[in-house]
C-alpha cells in the first residue's frame, strides 16, 4: 500500500495516458467516450427493444427499455473492458516491469482506474436520460459512488488474478473474452430478471452482477434504495479484491521469471 502512495502520480498519469491513448490522433477524440456506448445502446435497443419487444415493466414502451438497458449496460461494459484489459496488463507491460523499478501491482490498478472514467461518462448519460424521459431522480442516486466502488473492487480483484494467470497461460486472453460474454448474457441486462425461470434464479443470485445491475436500476430509474443483495456484494467485492492481491503477490515473482 505504501507503494501506491509513492507512485500515486504514476498511477494518475498512466491512467490518464490510458484514456488519452484511445483518443490520441483521432478526430473525434474524447467524444468517442460517449459515442461508443451510445452506438451499443442503439443496436441493443433496436434488436431487443423494437424487434423482440422485450419489456422491463408491463405496458411500458421502447424508451423505458432503453433506460433499463443502459443502467445495466454501461456499468457492465466498464467492468468488461477493465477485466479484459487487465488480463494483459502484465504481459503487455513487460518492459516496465523488468526494466524500470515500477511495482507491477499497480498495472491492473491503472486499468481499473481508467474504467471508472468510462463508467462515469456512461452514468452521466443514464442520469440525463432519466431526467428527460423518466420520472426524475431521487436523492438515492447519490449512492452511485458506492455502487461504483463495488464494481471497481471486483475489477481489481479479478484483474490481479487474471493478469498473473495470463503470464502462465497465454490462452487466458481468449478465454476471458468468452467468459465475459457468458457473464453478459448470464446477467439480466438486455432482459428483465423477472423473465428468468424460477428454478434458475438461485444460480443467477450467485452472480454479483445480478445484484449490482439491479442496484444501479434501483437508484437511477426507480429512485429507491438498493436491495440487501447489493450490500453483500459490496462486502464480497472487498474480500475478492483482497484475495486477488494476496494471489498476485504470491505468484508475481514466478510470473516475472516467465515474462
Amino acid at each position: 500500500m505504501s507503494q501506491i502512495a509513492n507512485y500515486s502520480q504514476a498511477v494518475y498519469l498512466l491512467s490518464a495516458r490510458d484514456l488519452k491513448q484511445r483518443s490520441a490522433g483521432s478526430y473525434l477524440g474524447w467524444l468517442w467516450l460517449v459515442l461508443q456506448p451510445a452506438f451499443m445502446l442503439l443496436i441493443y435497443t433496436f434488436v431487443f427493444g423494437v424487434i423482440l419487444k422485450v419489456r422491463f415493466q408491463t405496458g411500458s414502451g421502447t424508451g423505458d427499455f432503453a433506460l433499463y438497458l443502459m443502467a445495466g449496460l454501461f456499468p457492465f461494459n466498464a467492468f468488461r473492458e477493465a477485466a479484459d484489459r487487465s488480463t494483459s496488463s502484465l504481459t503487455s507491460n513487460r518492459q516496465l516491469i523488468q526494466r524500470v523499478v515500477f511495482p507491477p501491482v499497480l498495472l491492473p490498478l491503472v486499468v481499473s482506474m481508467t474504467s471508472l472514467v468510462t463508467e462515469i461518462a456512461g452514468l452521466a448519460i443514464v442520469a440525463l436520460a432519466v431526467l428527460v424521459m423518466g420520472e426524475g431522480l431521487t436523492p438515492w442516486v447519490l449512492m452511485f459512488p458506492l455502487l461504483m466502488l463495488a464494481r471497481f473492487l471486483l475489477n481489481l480483484g479479478v484483474g490481479w488474478v487474471l493478469s498473473v494467470l495470463n503470464v502462465f497461460f497465454r490462452d487466458m486472453n481468449q478465454l476471458i473474452g468468452m467468459l465475459l460474454t457468458l457473464l453478459f448474457f448470464g446477467t439480466p441486462i438486455i432482459y428483465p430478471a423477472s423473465l428468468v425461470p424460477e428454478k434458475w434464479v438461485w444460480i443467477y443470485k450467485l452472480n454479483p452482477f445480478y445484484h449490482l445491475v439491479s442496484a444501479y436500476r434501483s437508484i437511477f430509474i426507480e429512485g429507491i434504495p438498493p436491495e440487501v443483495g447489493f450490500y453483500i456484494v459490496l462486502v464480497l467485492s472487498a474480500v475478492i479484491a483482497l484475495l486477488g492481491l494476496v494471489f498476485f503477490s504470491k505468484t508475481l515473482d514466478r510470473a516475472k521469471d516467465l515474462l
Binding site: 509513492n6 507512485y7 502520480q9 504514476a10 494518475y12 498519469l13 498512466l14 495516458r17 488519452k20 491513448q21 490520441a24 490522433g25 507491460n93 518492459q95 516496465l96 523488468q98 526494466r99 524500470v100 523499478v101 515500477f102
Partner: peptide, 26 residues
C-alpha cells in the same frame, strides 16, 4: 536498464517525460 522503456509513441516528449518520471516514483 533499458532506455526509453515505457515511452509511448503517440505522446509528445513532454508527456513522456512526465510519465517517465512518475514511473520512477517522482
Amino acid at each position: 536498464l533499458e532506455l526509453g522503456s515505457g515511452f509511448h509513441p503517440e505522446f509528445t516528449g513532454v508527456e513522456n517525460i512526465r510519465i517517465g518520471c512518475a514511473v520512477l516514483g517522482l
